[in-house]
Design a protein around this nucleic acid. Structure first.
Lengths: 171, 171
DNA sequence: TCGATATAGTTGACATGTCAATTATTTAGG
DNA sequence: CCTAAATAATTGACATGTCAACTATATCGA
């Protein structure tokens, strides 16, 4: 904001500043919109998971990781894949275990480790949830055509890559 | 990408299915990318707020609401604007009050209500944080030109509007 | 004016997330 | 082989979020 004052009167260096400031404003607005859109969809998915399956997004995410690993995953592996801390995985696994959807099994190779696996009931439940989840997501983006989806994905990909590479090291 | 496969060979019902299924896949992938990008930037902002100002995103958000309301806001008003529950606002306000950045004042018109206000220290602190925050956001999107920013905003706006209108009522 | 009802805020129970400390086990070096 | 360091998982303290129950006050209608 600010710095809108003398810009209409004189061109040159000040004008570059004006343009930069407007773009800056746009960046902030874009961020708020990105955040709002993501949060809106996420809230919808959470509410539907709750209503249709009496479950939550983190539990769904954990089960999704397990479904692709029939032999189970160690807690640490789950933690890495879900990008959350180990303590968090312990808590969610406790709840899923209590619900009979996963089991903890000792790892033969490493007696410190546990492997978490979907139970048959967990696998059945997850498949139903995954199918519904995909429908909800398709619905959320149904307003975009194939070209728009590609374009949006491409733009987001550029931002993601930029943030990953440029900011990890900066002040 | 994709959809380059069977489409060149034969048209008809099967082909529509193929296209639909591939687009569906694309919607899911787009959603994961949207989520990953937002979470990445948000995590960066959280980490920087923590490192530079020893604070958190919800506290920053609450203070941002207050800064635009010099006469303060009622708890309920804060709750609506931040789109979180009243109980949550109570907790965050407790912490900010403990830190001396906001105060609760009884409302003269309504003895049930409290107005929350930034203290002078809170105002000073917030201004510094807001300036840094804007720099971080500008940096996050610095890889996009003005046209890309507009385009991305426009696509997100369409998705947001679609989700807001179409899904609020559906199964 | 009184009583039913609505509204403002807090509280407590719980889910999810972080971090730091702890326990158990494995691995590396001497 | 034995100890020191690394690794796997859990735990407890806390922040943030939800929801439902509660208290206090306002407001509406008869």
């Amino acid at each position: 904001m600010a710095r809108t004052h003398g810009s209409a009167q004189r061109l040159g260096a000040a004008d570059v500043e004006t343009r930069a400031s407007v773009e800056h404003h746009d960046a902030l607005r874009l961020w708020l919109r990105l955040l709002a859109t993501t949060n809106l969809i996420e809230a919808r998915v959470r509410a539907l998971l709750q209503r249709e399956f009496a479950t939550t997004l983190p539990r769904f995410d954990l089960m999704a990781q397990l479904e692709r690993a029939p032999e189970g995953l160690k807690m640490g592996e789950l933690s890495r894949r879900m990008m959350v801390t180990g303590g968090n995985v312990t808590g969610i696994t406790d709840l899923l275990e209590r619900e009979g959807l996963v089991v903890r099994l000792g790892d033969r190779e490493d007696r410190r480790a546990l492997r978490v696996r979907l139970t048959p009931a967990g696998r059945r439940t997850f498949r139903a949830m995954a199918e519904a989840h995909e429908r909800w997501i398709i619905q959320a983006f149904a307003t975009l055509g194939a070209a728009d989806i590609r374009r949006l994905g491409e733009l987001l990909g550029r931002v993601k890559k930029h943030v990953r590479t440029s900011q990890g090291s900066e002040p």
